[in-house]
Protein backbone atom coordinates (compact mmCIF):
# COMPACT_ATOMS: atom_id res chain seq x y z
CA UNK A 1 0.00 0.00 0.00
CA UNK A 2 2.77 2.45 0.89
CA UNK A 3 4.71 1.47 -2.19
CA UNK A 4 1.60 1.91 -4.28
CA UNK A 5 0.97 5.37 -2.84
CA UNK A 6 4.55 6.44 -3.47
CA UNK A 7 4.32 5.13 -6.99
CA UNK A 8 1.16 7.12 -7.58
CA UNK A 9 2.68 10.30 -6.14
CA UNK A 10 5.73 9.89 -8.37
CA UNK A 11 3.45 9.52 -11.35
CA UNK A 12 1.53 12.60 -10.27
CA UNK A 13 4.72 14.67 -10.12
CA UNK A 14 5.74 13.39 -13.55
CA UNK A 15 2.38 14.39 -14.99
CA UNK A 16 2.74 17.90 -13.56
CA UNK A 17 6.22 18.25 -15.05
CA UNK A 18 5.15 17.11 -18.47
CA UNK A 19 2.18 19.45 -18.40
CA UNK A 20 4.37 22.41 -17.48
CA UNK A 21 6.96 21.58 -20.13
CA UNK A 22 4.27 21.57 -22.77
CA UNK A 23 2.93 24.85 -21.49
CA UNK A 24 6.34 26.52 -21.52
CA UNK A 25 6.88 25.36 -25.07
CA UNK A 26 3.53 26.83 -26.04
CA UNK A 27 4.70 30.29 -24.99
CA UNK A 28 7.27 30.04 -27.77
CA UNK A 29 4.85 28.65 -30.30
CA UNK A 30 2.15 31.29 -29.76
CA UNK A 31 2.95 34.09 -32.20
CA UNK A 32 3.93 37.53 -30.96
CA UNK A 33 6.38 38.75 -28.36
CA UNK A 34 4.60 38.78 -25.01
CA UNK A 35 6.45 41.84 -23.82
CA UNK A 36 5.65 44.04 -26.80
CA UNK A 37 2.05 42.81 -26.85
CA UNK A 38 1.69 43.61 -23.19
CA UNK A 39 3.25 47.07 -23.34
CA UNK A 40 1.59 48.20 -26.53
CA UNK A 41 3.07 49.89 -29.62
CA UNK A 42 4.56 52.90 -27.86
CA UNK A 43 6.88 50.99 -25.55
CA UNK A 44 10.59 51.51 -25.89
CA UNK A 45 13.04 48.67 -26.44
CA UNK A 46 14.38 49.12 -22.89
CA UNK A 47 10.90 48.81 -21.39
CA UNK A 48 10.26 45.66 -23.39
CA UNK A 49 13.58 44.20 -22.37
CA UNK A 50 12.88 44.98 -18.70
CA UNK A 51 9.54 43.24 -18.92
CA UNK A 52 11.05 40.26 -20.68
CA UNK A 53 13.53 39.90 -17.84
CA UNK A 54 10.74 40.22 -15.31
CA UNK A 55 8.82 37.49 -17.05
CA UNK A 56 11.96 35.40 -17.25
CA UNK A 57 11.67 35.26 -21.02
CA UNK A 58 15.30 36.28 -21.60
CA UNK A 59 16.56 32.93 -20.45
CA UNK A 60 16.68 29.73 -22.48
CA UNK A 61 13.64 27.48 -22.23
CA UNK A 62 15.40 24.76 -20.24
CA UNK A 63 16.63 27.34 -17.74
CA UNK A 64 13.15 28.83 -17.39
CA UNK A 65 11.74 25.39 -16.76
CA UNK A 66 14.40 24.55 -14.21
CA UNK A 67 13.92 27.79 -12.33
CA UNK A 68 10.17 27.37 -12.36
CA UNK A 69 10.29 23.88 -10.86
CA UNK A 70 13.07 24.68 -8.43
CA UNK A 71 11.00 27.54 -7.09
CA UNK A 72 7.76 25.62 -7.26
CA UNK A 73 8.95 22.97 -4.81
CA UNK A 74 9.57 25.72 -2.27
CA UNK A 75 6.07 27.02 -2.85
CA UNK A 76 7.23 29.99 -4.87
CA UNK A 77 5.51 30.21 -8.22
CA UNK A 78 7.02 33.58 -9.18
CA UNK A 79 5.50 37.05 -9.24
CA UNK A 80 2.62 38.46 -11.14
CA UNK A 81 3.88 40.65 -13.98
CA UNK A 82 1.41 43.46 -13.35
CA UNK A 83 0.74 43.53 -9.63
CA UNK A 84 4.12 42.10 -8.55
CA UNK A 85 2.28 40.03 -5.95
CA UNK A 86 3.38 36.43 -5.38
CA UNK A 87 1.53 34.11 -7.76
CA UNK A 88 1.02 31.67 -4.91
CA UNK A 89 -0.96 34.26 -2.98
CA UNK A 90 -3.07 35.15 -5.99
CA UNK A 91 -3.88 31.49 -6.60
CA UNK A 92 -4.66 30.79 -2.97
CA UNK A 93 -7.19 33.61 -3.07
CA UNK A 94 -8.93 32.19 -6.13
CA UNK A 95 -8.61 28.45 -5.54
CA UNK A 96 -11.14 28.06 -2.68
CA UNK A 97 -13.87 29.55 -4.86
CA UNK A 98 -13.20 27.08 -7.64
CA UNK A 99 -12.87 24.12 -5.30
CA UNK A 100 -16.12 25.06 -3.59
CA UNK A 101 -17.83 25.33 -6.96
CA UNK A 102 -16.45 22.05 -8.31
CA UNK A 103 -17.11 20.31 -4.99
CA UNK A 104 -20.68 21.54 -4.83
CA UNK A 105 -21.28 20.55 -8.45
CA UNK A 106 -19.84 17.10 -7.88
CA UNK A 107 -21.55 16.77 -4.51
CA UNK A 108 -25.06 17.29 -5.76
CA UNK A 109 -24.35 15.15 -8.81
CA UNK A 110 -23.29 12.28 -6.52
CA UNK A 111 -26.14 12.82 -4.10
CA UNK A 112 -28.74 12.62 -6.86
CA UNK A 113 -27.01 10.55 -9.53
CA UNK A 114 -26.02 7.50 -7.50
CA UNK A 115 -29.40 6.87 -5.83
CA UNK A 116 -31.10 7.52 -9.15
CA UNK A 117 -28.88 4.95 -10.85
CA UNK A 118 -29.59 2.41 -8.13
CA UNK A 119 -33.28 3.03 -8.37
CA UNK A 120 -33.21 2.62 -12.15
CA UNK A 121 -31.29 -0.64 -11.90
CA UNK A 122 -33.58 -2.11 -9.27
CA UNK A 123 -36.74 -0.99 -11.05
CA UNK A 124 -35.42 -1.68 -14.48
CA UNK A 125 -37.72 -0.76 -17.36
CA UNK A 126 -40.12 1.00 -15.03
CA UNK A 127 -41.54 4.33 -16.13
CA UNK A 128 -39.18 6.16 -13.80
CA UNK A 129 -36.22 4.27 -15.23
CA UNK A 130 -37.18 5.30 -18.74
CA UNK A 131 -37.74 8.91 -17.75
CA UNK A 132 -34.37 9.16 -16.01
CA UNK A 133 -32.80 7.43 -19.01
CA UNK A 134 -34.10 10.06 -21.42
CA UNK A 135 -33.27 12.97 -19.12
CA UNK A 136 -29.80 11.55 -18.48
CA UNK A 137 -28.94 11.30 -22.15
CA UNK A 138 -30.28 14.82 -22.61
CA UNK A 139 -28.20 16.35 -19.84
CA UNK A 140 -25.06 14.39 -20.68
CA UNK A 141 -25.01 15.75 -24.20
CA UNK A 142 -25.57 19.33 -23.07
CA UNK A 143 -22.34 21.37 -22.72
CA UNK A 144 -22.10 22.76 -19.21
CA UNK A 145 -21.38 26.34 -20.36
CA UNK A 146 -24.65 26.28 -22.28
CA UNK A 147 -26.45 25.07 -19.19
CA UNK A 148 -24.74 27.83 -17.25
CA UNK A 149 -25.89 30.49 -19.69
CA UNK A 150 -29.46 29.24 -19.72
CA UNK A 151 -29.54 28.98 -15.95
CA UNK A 152 -28.28 32.51 -15.69
CA UNK A 153 -30.88 33.82 -18.11
CA UNK A 154 -33.80 31.88 -16.68
CA UNK A 155 -33.27 31.75 -12.93
CA UNK A 156 -31.19 34.85 -12.34
CA UNK A 157 -32.13 37.36 -15.02
CA UNK A 158 -35.72 36.39 -15.80
CA UNK A 159 -37.10 34.83 -12.61
CA UNK A 160 -34.61 36.60 -10.32
CA UNK A 161 -34.59 33.64 -7.92
CA UNK A 162 -30.84 33.60 -7.62
CA UNK A 163 -28.11 36.23 -7.88
CA UNK A 164 -26.62 36.57 -11.34
CA UNK A 165 -23.01 37.45 -10.73
CA UNK A 166 -20.22 37.22 -8.21
CA UNK A 167 -19.53 34.85 -5.37
CA UNK A 168 -21.30 36.67 -2.56
CA UNK A 169 -20.17 38.89 0.29
CA UNK A 170 -16.87 37.88 1.73
CA UNK A 171 -17.39 36.41 5.18
CA UNK A 172 -21.13 35.99 4.69
CA UNK A 173 -21.43 32.22 4.33
CA UNK A 174 -25.15 32.16 3.58
CA UNK A 175 -24.74 34.71 0.82
CA UNK A 176 -21.81 32.79 -0.63
CA UNK A 177 -23.78 29.57 -0.63
CA UNK A 178 -26.66 31.41 -2.24
CA UNK A 179 -24.35 32.52 -5.04
CA UNK A 180 -23.06 28.99 -5.39
CA UNK A 181 -26.41 27.38 -6.19
CA UNK A 182 -26.81 28.26 -9.84
CA UNK A 183 -23.26 27.66 -11.07
CA UNK A 184 -23.01 24.40 -9.11
CA UNK A 185 -26.31 23.29 -10.56
CA UNK A 186 -25.07 24.13 -14.04
CA UNK A 187 -21.80 22.24 -13.87
CA UNK A 188 -23.24 19.25 -11.99
CA UNK A 189 -26.27 18.67 -14.16
CA UNK A 190 -24.53 16.65 -16.84
CA UNK A 191 -22.85 14.52 -14.19
CA UNK A 192 -26.12 13.62 -12.55
CA UNK A 193 -27.24 11.87 -15.70
CA UNK A 194 -23.83 10.42 -16.35
CA UNK A 195 -23.48 8.98 -12.85
CA UNK A 196 -27.02 7.66 -12.93
CA UNK A 197 -26.32 5.81 -16.17
CA UNK A 198 -23.00 4.49 -14.96
CA UNK A 199 -24.29 3.31 -11.60
CA UNK A 200 -27.33 1.77 -13.27
CA UNK A 201 -25.15 -0.21 -15.67
CA UNK A 202 -22.72 -1.50 -13.07
CA UNK A 203 -25.53 -2.17 -10.60
CA UNK A 204 -27.36 -4.26 -13.17
CA UNK A 205 -24.20 -6.19 -13.82
CA UNK A 206 -23.56 -6.84 -10.14
CA UNK A 207 -27.17 -7.77 -9.45
CA UNK A 208 -26.81 -10.50 -12.06
CA UNK A 209 -23.70 -11.91 -10.41
CA UNK A 210 -23.67 -15.23 -8.67
CA UNK A 211 -22.87 -13.91 -5.19
CA UNK A 212 -25.99 -11.74 -5.17
CA UNK A 213 -27.96 -14.88 -5.90
CA UNK A 214 -26.22 -16.48 -2.92
CA UNK A 215 -27.19 -13.56 -0.70
CA UNK A 216 -30.78 -13.97 -1.84
CA UNK A 217 -30.66 -17.75 -1.38
CA UNK A 218 -30.07 -17.01 2.30
CA UNK A 219 -33.08 -14.75 2.37
CA UNK A 220 -31.14 -11.60 3.25
CA UNK A 221 -33.35 -8.50 3.38
CA UNK A 222 -33.44 -6.75 0.05
CA UNK A 223 -32.12 -3.49 1.47
CA UNK A 224 -29.08 -5.32 2.79
CA UNK A 225 -28.56 -7.14 -0.50
CA UNK A 226 -28.66 -3.87 -2.41
CA UNK A 227 -26.62 -1.66 -0.11
CA UNK A 228 -24.08 -3.99 1.36
CA UNK A 229 -23.78 -6.78 -1.18
CA UNK A 230 -24.39 -5.07 -4.51
CA UNK A 231 -23.67 -1.36 -4.16
CA UNK A 232 -20.29 -1.91 -2.53
CA UNK A 233 -19.17 -3.49 -5.79
CA UNK A 234 -21.20 -1.44 -8.21
CA UNK A 235 -19.75 1.79 -6.85
CA UNK A 236 -16.14 0.88 -7.69
CA UNK A 237 -16.14 1.88 -11.37
CA UNK A 238 -17.88 5.09 -10.38
CA UNK A 239 -15.21 6.01 -7.85
CA UNK A 240 -12.50 5.49 -10.45
CA UNK A 241 -14.42 7.59 -12.90
CA UNK A 242 -15.02 10.39 -10.41
CA UNK A 243 -11.27 10.85 -10.05
CA UNK A 244 -11.12 11.59 -13.74
CA UNK A 245 -14.42 13.46 -13.70
CA UNK A 246 -12.84 16.16 -11.56
CA UNK A 247 -10.90 17.25 -14.65
CA UNK A 248 -14.11 17.76 -16.58
CA UNK A 249 -15.69 19.40 -13.60
CA UNK A 250 -12.83 21.87 -13.24
CA UNK A 251 -13.14 22.88 -16.86
CA UNK A 252 -16.88 23.19 -16.32
CA UNK A 253 -16.12 25.43 -13.37
CA UNK A 254 -13.96 27.65 -15.60
CA UNK A 255 -16.91 28.30 -17.91
CA UNK A 256 -19.28 28.79 -15.02
CA UNK A 257 -16.93 31.37 -13.53
CA UNK A 258 -16.87 33.27 -16.78
CA UNK A 259 -20.62 33.14 -17.20
CA UNK A 260 -21.41 34.09 -13.61
CA UNK A 261 -18.38 36.35 -13.28
CA UNK A 262 -17.29 34.47 -10.16
CA UNK A 263 -13.77 34.81 -8.83
CA UNK A 264 -11.77 31.62 -9.21
CA UNK A 265 -9.09 29.81 -11.11
CA UNK A 266 -11.03 29.91 -14.35
CA UNK A 267 -11.61 33.61 -14.37
CA UNK A 268 -8.00 34.14 -13.31
CA UNK A 269 -6.51 32.11 -16.15
CA UNK A 270 -8.89 33.66 -18.64
CA UNK A 271 -8.04 37.23 -17.68
CA UNK A 272 -4.31 36.75 -17.21
CA UNK A 273 -3.82 34.72 -20.37
CA UNK A 274 -5.39 37.55 -22.32
CA UNK A 275 -2.82 39.91 -20.75
CA UNK A 276 0.04 37.48 -21.37
CA UNK A 277 0.71 37.37 -17.67
CA UNK A 278 2.74 34.21 -17.99
CA UNK A 279 3.92 33.61 -14.41
CA UNK A 280 0.37 33.72 -13.11
CA UNK A 281 -0.97 31.55 -15.93
CA UNK A 282 1.79 28.99 -15.44
CA UNK A 283 1.29 28.85 -11.72
CA UNK A 284 -2.44 28.51 -12.05
CA UNK A 285 -2.14 25.71 -14.57
CA UNK A 286 0.36 23.90 -12.36
CA UNK A 287 -1.97 24.10 -9.37
CA UNK A 288 -4.93 22.97 -11.47
CA UNK A 289 -3.04 19.99 -12.83
CA UNK A 290 -1.96 19.28 -9.26
CA UNK A 291 -5.55 19.33 -8.02
CA UNK A 292 -6.58 17.03 -10.84
CA UNK A 293 -3.79 14.58 -10.13
CA UNK A 294 -4.50 14.60 -6.41
CA UNK A 295 -8.16 13.82 -7.05
CA UNK A 296 -7.25 10.87 -9.21
CA UNK A 297 -4.84 9.68 -6.57
CA UNK A 298 -7.52 9.91 -3.91
CA UNK A 299 -9.95 8.02 -6.15
CA UNK A 300 -7.44 5.24 -6.75
CA UNK A 301 -6.64 4.90 -3.08
CA UNK A 302 -10.35 4.90 -2.30
CA UNK A 303 -10.90 2.03 -4.72
CA UNK A 304 -8.06 0.15 -3.08
CA UNK A 305 -9.70 0.80 0.26
CA UNK A 306 -13.09 -0.44 -0.91
CA UNK A 307 -11.89 -3.43 -2.90
CA UNK A 308 -9.77 -5.95 -0.99
CA UNK A 309 -8.79 -7.63 -4.24
CA UNK A 310 -7.10 -4.47 -5.46
CA UNK A 311 -5.58 -3.90 -2.04
CA UNK A 312 -3.96 -7.30 -2.04
CA UNK A 313 -2.39 -6.91 -5.46
CA UNK A 314 -0.61 -3.75 -4.32
Amino acid sequence: MLYYSLQRVALAVAICMVAMTILFSLVYVIPGDPASLALGPRATAEMKEALRVRMGLDQPLAMQLYNFFANAVTGNLGYDVWTRRPVTTIIMEALPYTLALAGAGLGWAILIGIPLGCYSAINRNSLMDKITGIISVGTISMPSFLVAVYCLLLFAVHLKWFPAIGAGERGDLADQLWHLVLPAFAIGLGWVGYLARLVRASMLEVLGESHVRTARAFGLPEAMVIRRYALRLAILPTVTLLGIAVGGLLSGAVFAELVFNRPGIGLLVYNEAARRNYPTVMGTVLVTVGVFVICQLVADLLVALLDPRVRRSL
Binding site: S210, H211, R216, A217, E222, Y229, R232
Partner: peptide
Protein backbone atom coordinates in the same frame (compact mmCIF):
# COMPACT_ATOMS: atom_id res chain seq x y z
CA UNK B 1 -40.32 -16.06 -0.10
CA UNK B 2 -37.51 -14.15 1.58
CA UNK B 3 -38.59 -15.47 4.93
CA UNK B 4 -38.44 -19.02 3.64
CA UNK B 5 -35.08 -18.79 1.94
CA UNK B 6 -32.23 -19.49 4.28
CA UNK B 7 -34.58 -20.82 6.90
CA UNK B 8 -36.32 -23.74 5.25
CA UNK B 9 -33.89 -24.21 2.42
CA UNK B 10 -30.49 -22.94 1.35
CA UNK B 11 -28.19 -23.60 -1.52
CA UNK B 12 -24.57 -24.36 -2.20
CA UNK B 13 -23.66 -23.23 -5.68
CA UNK B 14 -21.44 -24.73 -8.28
CA UNK B 15 -18.62 -22.23 -8.55
CA UNK B 16 -17.22 -21.05 -5.21
CA UNK B 17 -15.07 -18.44 -6.93
CA UNK B 18 -18.15 -16.40 -7.81
CA UNK B 19 -20.72 -17.43 -5.24
CA UNK B 20 -19.25 -15.46 -2.33
CA UNK B 21 -19.21 -11.68 -2.18
CA UNK B 22 -15.67 -10.54 -3.10
CA UNK B 23 -15.60 -7.29 -1.10
CA UNK B 24 -16.96 -8.55 2.20
Amino acid sequence: LRDLRGRKATMVFQDPSTSLNPVL
